[in-house]
């Protein structure tokens, strides 16, 4: 996918190869400008690929304008028609498809029930709250029973509480309709909560595809590990099945690792402070109490700052203070070796 002319050409998407399964909740995740929305717009037909192809259940989509694709979009700004009522908005696609009036009325009723907006059919979009507009946008797209529903940052405009509600709502709609959802977001937590599978995107390429567990527990690169959740990175050297840290301590390798420089990724909640000071020696820089958890910020010689997150199961026991020397324990299964 190449944009622009001459020296201004920009390759927005590069070597993307994806297969999305029937009835899957598939998420494209990445920071702004990574190409996730462009990919969605290619599927919807608002953009044409300069090379490559997109198939829908075997049928190539090239050259088909958006209005001939059995795919519907929920826009980030909802893009509800301000001059039409809620019911007319929902009916729009079916009318364009030339469905009989009785059927349209029936589907509109069903959709209003599905998104819990019965009684709102004659309102204008401007008279609805953000969450209600979101539901109308969903109903308008789902009414046509598309083969694929595309959701472009659809929850980003909502406040946190409403967003959590709509996340559950979307999962319910996905289960009830059996339609394939392709969801675009920059919010990693949202992606983990909702998706069957996630594609993490980076500068127009796909960095990793996998289930939320795979992406979170087994990131394949520093980029993915850093983007999804919080991660500590340690520099180490692999030699003969052992990982040597600069301070002289060593760890067993969790998987076979060829000798050389490596980066270790460790999730903050999977590292532990040892009770007896054994393990890698570190110094406490700060202790942050967060209610459910306490975060210990550690300094390790020759390493980046390191975080340990520990659940406050026994209440707020502040056993260590800033400045204390502590031992850091890294269970072998908590350590992920990255190639870079």
């Amino acid at each position: 996918m190449v944009y622009g002319e001459g020296s201004e050409r920009v390759r927005a998407l590069d070597r993307i190869s994806l297969e999305i399964g029937h009835n899957e909740f598939f998420t494209l995740l990445g920071p702004s400008g990574c190409g996730k929305t462009t990919l969605l717009r290619l599927i919807a037909g608002f953009e044409q690929p300069t090379e490559g192809s997109i198939r829908l259940y075997g049928q190539p989509l090239e050259g088909l304008p958006p209005y001939r694709r059995p795919v519907n979009t929920v826009f980030q700004s909802y893009a509800l028609f301000p001059h039409l009522s809620v019911a007319q908005n929902i009916a729009f696609g079916l009318e364009m498809l030339g469905k009989p009036r009785a059927e349209i009325a029936q589907v509109v009723r069903e959709m209003l029930g599905l998104v819990k907006l019965v009684g709102y059919e004659n309102r204008r979009p401007a008279q609805l709250s953000g969450g209600q507009q979101q539901r109308v946008a969903l109903a308008r797209a789902l009414a046509n029973r598309p083969k694929v529903l595309l959701l472009d940052e659809s929850l980003s405009a909502l406040d946190l509480k409403l967003r959590k509600e709509m996340q559950l709502e979307l999962k319910r709609l996905h289960a009830e309709t059996g339609i394939t959802f392709v969801f675009v977001t920059h919010d990693q937590e949202e992606a983990l909560t909702m998706s069957d599978r996630i594609a993490v995107m980076q500068e127009g390429r796909i960095a990793q595809v996998g289930t939320p567990t795979e992406i979170y527990d087994a990131p394949n690169s520093r980029y993915v590990a850093d983007f999804i959740g919080e991660t500590n990175f340690l520099k180490a050297r692999a030699r003969g099945g052992v990982l040597l840290l600069p301070d002289g301590s060593s760890l067993p390798t969790p998987v076979h690792t060829p000798d050389g420089e490596v980066t270790l990724a460790i999730r903050p909640e999977r590292a532990r402070l040892s009770a007896d000071g054994s393990g890698i020696s570190a110094r406490v820089k700060d202790v942050v109490y967060k209610g459910t958890d306490t975060i210990y910020l550690l300094e390790l010689p020759g390493q980046e700052p390191f975080q340990v997150r520990s659940q406050n199961r026994l209440g707020a026991l502040q056993l260590v203070r800033p400045g204390d020397p502590v031992g850091l324990e890294l269970p072998p299964e908590a350590v992920r070796v990255l190639k870079e």
């Binding site: 919807a44 037909g45 608002f46 304008p65 958006p66 209005y67 001939r68 795919v71 519907n72 979009t73 826009f75 700004s77 893009a79 509800l80 028609f81 301000p82 729009f92 696609g93 364009m96 498809l97 308008r140 797209a141 046509n144």
Partner: peptide, 22 residues
Amino acid sequence: DPRLAEAATDLYASPWHTFRRV
């Protein structure tokens, strides 16, 4: 909002219907 016309085409409206209805 240019998204309105896009939404119409996405909902199976031909260019003429997009103009006429939206």
